[in-house]
Amino acid sequence: MSQIPYDRVKLARDSKRPTGQDYIKNIFKNFIEFHGDRRYADDKAIMGGIAWLDGSPVTVIAIEKGHTSNERVERNFGAPHPEGYRKALRLMKQAEKFGRPIICFIDTSGAYCGIGAEERGQGQAIAENLMEMSTLCVPVLSILIGEGGSGGALALAVADRVWMLKNAVYSVISPEGCASILWKDSSKADVAAESLKLTAEDAKSLGVVDRILAEDDIGKKEYFERIHSLLIDEVNSLSKDPELLQKRYDRFRRIGMVKVEQII
């Protein structure tokens, strides 16, 4: 089956795909959800709490889109407000305090673009997460399970390992947004999707993603079991790494392509 990148965008947005909550339920044991950012509110677009991963406590954070239209409205279609990012950071700091690894599931079209979100500092909330996550002293592993929409996704993806599902997408801007800005025509989203290099294979070749997860059996028991055992192995090996923070810094430090001219 041949697919153009825009088909991947549509697949990534499919409401039938497992959402953050499905991963939590099927991979971890005894998830206890914690609420609120202790500053303003509890953002339902981001879920977070603690759970068991193979006998060890971990902190789990997931952007939740919901499946049905009611759920989607309740979850604001997985578009977090600043308080969602602040809740996530609060739980990550808590994880650091108690030495728990952090696992994030990312699925968002982007941070919410609204009046309240701006008034309460959407940019500042994302910026603070990027800064603080870069030095968290515990292993951080992020998995892009659907849409990876720009800064709103990156705010949970400054991690030691970033994995991505085969049909997830990760992009600086939505293909529709890109087409409407560059060519004043959002119907050219398919061209934009191709140009933005937003597929899992592209993200891996750009060094942004470390591993692509197959999803032929997505949603099945074996599918979640496979991710479960991959997570156990990775978390175990990251937990033993004495150079975790330096490697995390270097991981992002080397991303980018520039021309360096010699000065005579």
Binding site: I126, G151, A203, L206, I255, M257
Partner: peptide, 11 residues
């Protein structure tokens, strides 16, 4: 510059 631009925020 797509994702490479996005990653400059983290860097």
């Amino acid at each position: 510059e797509g994702l490479l631009s996005l990653m400059q925020m983290a860097k």
